[in-house]
Simulated assay, not measured.
Amino acid sequence: MDIKIGDIVARKSYECDLLFRVIDIKVRNDGEKEVILHGEDVRLIADAPFDDLIIIDEQEQQMRQKKESELIEQSYKLLRQDYHLLKQKSEYRATGGYQTEEDFFQIPGRVLHMDGDPVYLRKCLSMYERIGVPVHGIYCEEKEMPERVGELIDRIRPDILVITGHDSYSKSKGKATDLKAYRHSRYFVQTVKEARKRIPHLDQLVIFAGACQSYFESLIRAGANFASSPARVNIHALDPVYIVSRISFTPFIETVHVWDVLRNTLTGEKGLGGIETKGVLRTGMPFRLIEKENQEGRYDGR
């Protein structure tokens, strides 16, 4: 079987439960080939022997993608319902209980999304755009994130920071409480700490950090508001988008309760968790002023 970089494969030893993208092929010291894999829909990095893999044909890929799209659409609709409820509440407050007819405007929270996978980053940016969240996406390998995050925060000035990519936990390398047993969690932890050196307050910069099977407790202790993965399970590629979108559209005077965020994700509480956090949306009026400033190119949402 001629497997090459870029192929979509599955692992026979796991009953072909997940699809993976081949990102590298290495030859071990014993001469056997080892394939490095990135999850196609979940943020998992894995390695597998060459003979454990099977190439997934186009028809099977399309069938699985259809099921995946249905799940994504269901989650998106739930998120939009929440958004409309939040907007109605903001409109009620801004108009004094509908006593005035002034048009109001809203400034959702700006997101800086650092991702260790360029394919996943494109998927996330597409969903951010669909939802209407202002975002600046940066592809960056996980090990480089701690060095880059400070400069990016200073330059982009986000309200919300996403630190994600690929990760995995290996029992053979240590207990679940041993940071060395995780492939990339230590880089995520270091990046969160560097971000908190810039902005220590949990409500001035909201942070989501982690990927599949990441060391949840360590990320929360480092200063993340939300993280993965409490039960060391896989998380979906778009789960960070659903979490931060809810925060982006929640008014700053309201608290975002953890379950209100998790219930619209594709993974749920086994893969995601966090702490109560204030929203970052700002509402103002009159809308005509913002419209005029936008036309003149002088208003940037700050």
Rank of each mutant, 00 (worst) to 15 (best):
I8D: 01
R11Y: 01
K12L: 13
C16E: 15
R21V: 01
V22A: 06
D24P: 08
E32H: 09
E32R: 15
E34Q: 14
I36N: 02
L37N: 03
E40L: 12
D41K: 14
D52N: 03
E58C: 08
R64Y: 00
K67Y: 13
E68V: 11
E70C: 15
E70K: 11
E73C: 07
R80Y: 10
L85D: 12
L85G: 09
K89C: 12
G96T: 04
G96I: 02
G97Y: 00
Y98W: 15
F105Q: 02
Q106I: 04
V111H: 00
D115A: 05
Y120K: 14
R122E: 14
L125Y: 07
M127H: 03
M127G: 09
E129N: 01
E129Y: 01
I138E: 12
C140P: 11
C140Q: 15
K143Q: 11
R148L: 15
L152E: 14
D154L: 10
D154F: 03
D154A: 07
K171H: 03
T177F: 15
L179T: 04
S185K: 01
V192E: 07
K193Q: 05
R196S: 09
I199F: 10
D203C: 04
S214M: 00
Y215W: 06
F216G: 11
S218T: 13
A222D: 01
S229Q: 03
S229P: 14
P230R: 06
P230L: 07
A231Q: 14
A231G: 10
R232H: 09
N234P: 13
N234S: 13
V241G: 12
I243H: 04
T255Q: 13
T255A: 09
R263I: 15
R263D: 15
E269L: 03
G271Q: 08
G274F: 02
E276P: 06
G284C: 06
I290S: 15
N294G: 13
Q295A: 15
R298W: 14
R298A: 07
Y299G: 11
D300T: 15
D300K: 15
